[in-house]
Amino acid sequence: MKALSYAKALVFLLCLGPLARLIALGLMEELGANPIEVVTRSTGTWAMVFLWIALAVTPLRHWTGWHVLLDVRRMIGLFSAFYALLHLTTYLWLDQFFDWVAIGHDILKRPFITLGMGAIVLMLPLAITSTDRMVRALGARRWVALHKLTYAAAVLAACHYLWLVKRDLSQPLIYAVVLLLLLLARLPLYLKRRARRSPARRAGAAAGSTVRPATRPVA
């Protein structure tokens, strides 16, 4: 258990790395000609990276059997929300200076802003309900259903990135393809679960299941 808490502390520090790097570069005045653009891009990128990592936990856990991964998934998901909020704050403050008319205009008129806002709006209830107490209060089944919003947030984020670049789609396409693979990797798990739930199968073989009983919600 102690090893696990050390591992968690390590992951926590690693997740703070991108922010520490930005702060260090800022203090050294090494953020380049357009520092606000760098901060916006970096926080947006890391919000996506951590979300993608969180989405990789389920397939990885099933292939490797490292159920311990579940213990850090929540933290990684929260860091994704943290960087997404930093990204949003950078936009609202350093890009728009809280000009709510301009911001409203942007959200309505510019699809990539609309999608980005949508992704963050979907992530907020997930971050808020991430505590153990919230899981208990909601009940596992409802909590799991709610946290399926992760998929929608990820898809919106990927589209947000695809839509904002001027011409060179190579970077956002990498994120979109990886997300697609992460979602496809769940397909066999989903089909297996569905098959197990269907009455025809249940009558046949119920005993052979190797999946660990869900001591924790699995999304």
Binding site: A33, N34, I36, E37, F97, A102, K109, R110, F112
Partner: peptide, 19 residues
């Protein structure tokens, strides 16, 4: 006249904080 994907009403002068 906005770019279809972003506003052209303001700009960030490199080296300045506010647009």
């Amino acid at each position: 006249v906005d770019h279809p994907r972003w506003s052209q009403a303001t700009e960030r002068r490199i080296g300045e904080f506010r647009k």
